[in-house]
Design a protein around this nucleic acid. Structure first.
Lengths: 206, 206
DNA sequence: CCAGTTACGCTACGACCCGTAGCGAAAGCT
DNA sequence: AGCTTTCGCTACGGGTCGTAGCGTAACTGG
């Protein structure tokens, strides 16, 4: 009667090694053939696994790819570089180089596109990728306040809205620059963008 | 010997009505079934046209959809609302409501994703959609300078880079807000975003 | 008016991928 | 041992792809 028990005690356990092999094979296949020509059968072959095993764990291509690329985003960090501007420049460059990797480049927009007509998938993207990276904004903001570069927000509700805004602006700008405009996120561009963002934050604080 | 003559003088001419019927059918199909379940056969049926006719004019689904949605972006305008901030708020709201339409929502990210592995498609998107809308940034900037809200840039090369930056920031932020974060672009958000952008522009002018 | 040229609608086709069902074997538990 | 669940494998109907071939329609130049 206990169908979705998190850890079942009886029966043969699922191979954790197969899990990682599948995700790794998915990333490799994304590099080689891209999103549109990626098939479940190919991933299964690459991972040395039966196609049915894939369908036992993921509903389809969308969910599989989300899980395969989500872990890559956890590499992002926010080392303390001494100033708000330097911190932003650092993380933006990290994010840009992550987006330059062929597996993320071809997969990210594709799953977002699919998610426009698939609410569960949208939720999966949110919890697996988006929400996890907002931590970077919060850490950066707290650090800037500690340095006295930004005033502490009066209303915590306003603070949350501001963090969301900054996240959308930063992530959106980099994604648009790389994938839509198709031009590089180089030192020069990052410098200009950071100046714009920091200037706007300072002005909004008044 | 003149294979790709722009207007051939001999033979039966292509039906312009069929062209429009196909693009219209493509948009309608996008609304109904979305990008991933959109098939060339279905579009042909809806348009009352043979499937082979589609392939005679477009190489595939990607190119067809780009042409089908590109015209929608030409609706964007930048009416003079008296101030830089008001102008930005107006066009951002327009862009957001355009992105809310199901046909653009599901198609835009999908073709961008495909374009990451298809250079000709990337070029087609650039010339058909992206470059055409940069006019809005240039018009807004010129208007702000005429009002005295922003100084005229010294170097025209710097001015072009600044325009590209503003375009990526504005378009990217709205797209990210709507499609990735999945939250609405309401009056409140637009107000905050515009304050951030205008503040940044003013600060960068120093 | 007629021959030449091109577009159109239709049908049929092999190739591929999908997602599932059914089977026997393997791997864990009590 | 006996039970339970996963695994690899094969096979299948259903769908889409992109193309080829055919006869017909539309338009042009002689």
């Amino acid at each position: 009667m206990q169908h979705s028990s998190p850890s079942r005690t009886t029966g043969r356990p699922r191979s954790a090694a197969a899990d990682e092999a599948i995700l790794e094979a998915t990333r490799a296949a994304l590099v080689d053939v891209g999103w549109s020509k990626l098939t479940m059968g190919e991933v299964a072959t690459r991972a040395g696994v039966a196609k049915t095993t894939l369908y036992r764990r993921w509903a389809g291509k969308n969910e599989l790819v989300v899980d395969a690329v989500a872990v890559l985003f956890d590499e992002l960090e926010l080392p303390d570089r001494g100033s708000l501007a330097a911190d932003i420049e650092g993380v933006v460059l990290q994010f840009a180089s992550l987006l330059d990797r062929p597996e993320t480049k071809t997969a990210l927009m594709a799953v977002v596109a699919e998610a426009t007509r698939d609410e569960p998938l949208r939720e999966r993207i949110r919890t697996s990728i988006v929400e996890r990276q907002k931590r970077l904004v919060l850490v950066g903001r707290a650090r800037a306040e500690r340095r006295g570069e930004l005033p502490a927000p009066a209303d915590p509700c306003v603070a949350a809205a501001a963090a969301d805004l900054i996240f959308d602006v930063a992530a959106g700008a980099v994604v648009h620059r790389v994938l839509v405009s198709g031009e590089p996120v180089d030192q020069e561009w990052v410098r200009r963008f950071t100046a714009l963002l920091v200037g706007g934050l300072a002005a909004a604080a008044d």
